[in-house]
Design a protein around this nucleic acid. Structure first.
Length: 273
DNA sequence: CGGTGGACCTGCTGGC
DNA sequence: TGCCAGCAGGTCCACC
């Protein structure tokens, strides 16, 4: 579900609704996420006020007064939504934040690949989740020059390069696929065989694709919604992802699928080289 | 260094 | 109709 655009859509949808509100109570229903929920640390958030919402890569940052941040990662199947305080608990609702004013923020995650933890805001960048995170794509620090530098001396397929969070943060399978399509680069091309001009093309493609996806409210394939339950529409615009056998929107050749590192890639064999 | 395969999980789909 | 294989937006690790 959630790559950078989905988390950014979520952040924007929740920011005005959460900023300034106080967490009245915290319920940990099942701590058994891949990274187990720390019941004690999370419960200590009761009484704290939310000051702002941030994002780093695919991590949502719920910043609290008094120098702590509640960090949420949605894994593959996580959802974070506001609901009426009286709404019954849903299946796979692992964590519930009850807010003043009668609403609750609930984290659901059927596959339990997600995470939710409290960290010191000042030390966030040194936290193990963030320490090795790469370029933040929409911050202005991603360009062809930076990608070329990161790729220097490396080998391996450009798709793996794009999806390596230690190099570029927030780009997952869907948007790596779409950015490569836009830049007309074959997903299996070695990063050692990409020139300056094509790095620039790729950097701007990543940025354009992510920004478009945010404008469209993210990609909803099965279940993504923003914090208010609104689905995205970028799935209507996907050029290659999930479109094996369909005509390439540029040249009409049939889109192909290949598997790289266990993940599906989709590409046009004619216009991606 | 890189690449693969598996692990962690549940749920949905499509083919038989 | 029911069952089963395959697949899914993410990370992390061991191993070659």
């Amino acid at each position: 579900m959630p790559e950078l655009p989905e988390i950014e859509v979520l952040r924007r949808s929740l920011e005005s609704r959460l900023a300034g509100r106080t967490i009245a109570a915290v319920e940990v229903h099942s701590p058994r996420l891949r990274e187990p929920l720390d019941r004690k640390r999370l419960s200590n958030l009761a009484g704290r006020r939310i000051s702002a919402l941030g994002r780093r890569g695919k991590y949502l940052l719920i910043e609290l007064e008094h120098a702590e941040t509640l960090v949420i990662h949605l894994g593959m199947s996580g959802r974070l939504t506001l609901a009426d305080a009286a709404a019954p608990r849903e299946a796979h609702e692992h964590l519930t934040l009850r807010l003043d004013g009668g609403e609750k923020l609930r984290l659901r995650d059927p596959r339990r690949f997600g995470a939710a933890f409290v960290a010191s805001t000042a030390r966030l960048a040194r936290d193990r989740h963030f320490r090795d995170l790469g370029l933040e794509p929409l911050s202005g620090e991603l360009d062809g020059e930076r990608l070329a530098v990161l790729a220097a001396g490396r080998r391996g397929p450009v798709k793996s390069f794009l999806m390596d969070g230690r190099l570029v943060a927030g780009v997952g399978n869907i948007y790596a696929t779409e950015a490569l399509f836009r830049a007309r680069i074959h997903p299996a091309r070695s990063v050692a065989r990409i020139g300056r001009d094509r790095w620039q093309e790729l950097a701007s493609s990543v940025i354009v694709v992510l920004e478009q996806a945010i404008v469209e409210g993210g990609t909803t394939i099965n279940d993504f919604t923003d914090g208010t339950g609104l689905a995205g529409e970028f799935q209507m615009v996907l050029a290659a992802y999930g479109r094996e056998g369909e005509a390439c929107p540029r040249c009409r050749a049939p889109i192909r699928r290949l598997v790289q590192a266990g993940r599906s890639s989709f590409y046009c064999p004619r216009c991606q080289r």
